[in-house]
Design a protein around this nucleic acid. Structure first.
Ligand code: SF4
Ligand code: SF4
Lengths: 133, 133
DNA sequence: AACATATCCGACTGGAAAAGTCCTATTTAT
DNA sequence: ATAAATAGGACTTTTCCAGTCGGATATGTT
């Protein structure tokens, strides 16, 4: 509960890695070995980050990844959002149209939770990758 | 990911309910029906909250629960902590002694995540149940 | 042209955690 | 005695996440 997913952690580690090397092109294999991360899983993460324009990808041999923008322009929130595919929500009903929660109609904490949600977003948005290098 | 558990939500709803009724004694049945929450599950939650001294329990017929202290003295964090049994951690390695994460030794984001963790704790601790009544 | 080394991407599996259920014991007002 | 409530262990079901596998595509090197 309230835990970041491994994917996000791996993504952050990878981005930090590339940044710390002066945005040199880096491969999945290199990063996975360096940090003891499952290769295939990290590969997926990098693909998502590339699709989300957080990093650039270079195919073929000598290929790899570089950051798409400066480390102080990438927030933790960006990484979460791109990897998870959605804005992180503290409750399943927040930010969705279809409401599957049985409590929904009588729920008295929706609005307060939205306020908390906003505060959490602030925390994640204000922290940039540059601060973890 | 980053979602509150249903248990915590149910707990918050129940506490808010009791508070909104001027700390009148309330039963699980009454609350579960009112908000369409599974009875047995809410019962478990209330038992934990009672054990954690957030609410008082009264057994026997005419029994039920009341708050153990004023609503502005109960933080969201209290509720999370008591129901989950542990301090919520944003990463599995934070606040534990045994480290099961394969990355641990080479992890470069542990410390930054601790900072985020601290900020999140602030958010949850500063918000009191009285603010959601 | 052949090869090696990369990224790309969908499908799949296994396991852990969350959500919910069931059953029985105990307490207490009437 | 009975009814209505909490107490609490054991269990099942569901959902989500981490990790794996297989094969396609791109590209530099020889
Ligand atoms: S409706 Fe209330 S209980 Fe259901 S998810 Fe939204 S906030 Fe949580
Ligand atoms: S070690 Fe690094 S990766 Fe592993 S859990 Fe702690 S923070 Fe996440």
């Amino acid at each position: 509960m309230l835990k970041l997913s491994k994917k996000v952690e791996y993504g952050l580690i990878a981005i930090r890695h590339i940044a710390s090397l002066g945005n040199q092109i880096s491969t999945v294999k290199e990063i996975a070995e360096r940090y003891n991360i499952p290769n295939e899983l990290l590969a997926k993460v990098m693909q998502k980050l590339a699709k989300g324009k957080v990093i650039y990808s270079y195919q073929g041999s000598l290929g790899g990844y570089t950051l798409a923008r400066a480390a102080d322009q990438i927030s933790i929130m960006d990484v979460i959002h791109v990897i998870e595919g959605t804005q992180p929500a503290i409750a399943e009903c927040l930010g969705k149209i279809e409401h599957t929660c049985s409590v929904y109609d009588n729920c008295t904490i929706k609005n307060p939770l939205e306020k908390i949600q906003y505060n959490l977003e602030q925390v994640f948005s204000s922290m940039k990758v540059s601060e973890i290098v």
